[in-house]
Amino acid sequence: MKRRAFLKWAGGKYSLVEDIQRHLPPARKLVEPFVGAGSIFLNTNYDQYLLADINPDLINLYNLLKKQPNTYISEAKRWFVADNNRKEAYLSIRKQFNQSDDVMYRSLAFLYMNRFGFNGLCRYNKKGGFNVPFGSYKKPYFPEAELEFFAEKAKKATFVCQSYTETFKRARKGAVVYCDPPYAPLSTTANFTSYAGNGFSLDDQAALADVSETAAKKRGIPVLISNHDTTLTRRLYHGATLNVVKVKRTISRNGNGRNKVDELLALYSSDCN
């Protein structure tokens, strides 16, 4: 049974789970430097997980859910009421979120805004303020079963807020790394902004390819990366085995406007056993 993440997530990997499972080498531990909503974590069965992201709100939520699942879920459920499904209520909560340092409040508001905000987007302005508009949905879904499953599975996971380079340093032989970075633009004119507020540039794309190849060839840790299938990414991943998969784009609010595009799964295999 495929498990859905409790967060809506732009670029989430739910639709690619089977393809990614097929190309992930066997290992004791899965390391994810860009965990996002965690679809791969939820649909694989490793002994241990190291799951990282540079978004502190995301990682704080995951650690709270892991440590206090009953408290978090019961508190979160109270936010999913009709009175909160109004633009004025949403904007008030968003304003409080941006002014608060309280981890529990921010974690509860983060889930609320993910479900009541527009299209499940996660976006911050340059000052670090969450700025996704109200979503105007009839009755946002409270993902209780998904939260409970995540909390149970989280017992096997360590969640850390850090850069992908730091996460690679923590990977050890016996692990496999899966990278789902902010994708390279489909064209040089594409509007390319990062969901966590600091851009993932073309230089970052190249650096990730380098650190992945080094991990595989010199440290014996295989790395699988997903990205758009473009001339650029094929050049970046020239040292990897490339497989193409088709996936539907899910950002468009109009389902009819969602086209299938090619994505690459680039596997850097370990040369040393």
Rank of each mutant, 00 (worst) to 15 (best):
S107I: 00
W79D: 00
L58H: 01
L121C: 06
Q68C: 09
T167Q: 08
V103C: 10
S100R: 05
F168Y: 06
N43Y: 03
K87L: 08
E75I: 08
K169G: 08
E148V: 11
I59T: 05
E166A: 10
A76V: 00
Y62S: 03
W79E: 09
I54E: 13
A109S: 13
R170S: 13
N70E: 11
K155P: 03
L91E: 15
S136C: 15
V132C: 13
L108Y: 04
L147S: 03
P143Y: 05
E144D: 13
P56K: 05
R78H: 09
Y49K: 04
C161A: 13
G129Y: 10
L58C: 01
Y105S: 09
D57R: 04
S92N: 14
K138L: 11
L50W: 02
P69A: 01
K67E: 15
T158P: 06
I54Q: 10
E166Q: 12
P143A: 11
A89E: 04
N119A: 12
E146S: 15
Q99K: 14
V160R: 11
M104V: 07
M104Y: 12
K127G: 09
S74L: 00
Q96Y: 07
Y105A: 09
T165F: 12
K153R: 06
Y141I: 07
Y105C: 03
K155F: 08
Y124V: 10
F142L: 14
S107H: 05
A154G: 06
Y105N: 08
R123M: 02
R115L: 04
T158D: 15
E88C: 04
V132M: 06
F168N: 02
A171V: 05
Y105T: 04
N55G: 02
A157Q: 08
N45H: 07
A52P: 06
D101R: 15
Y141F: 15
L61N: 02
P69F: 02
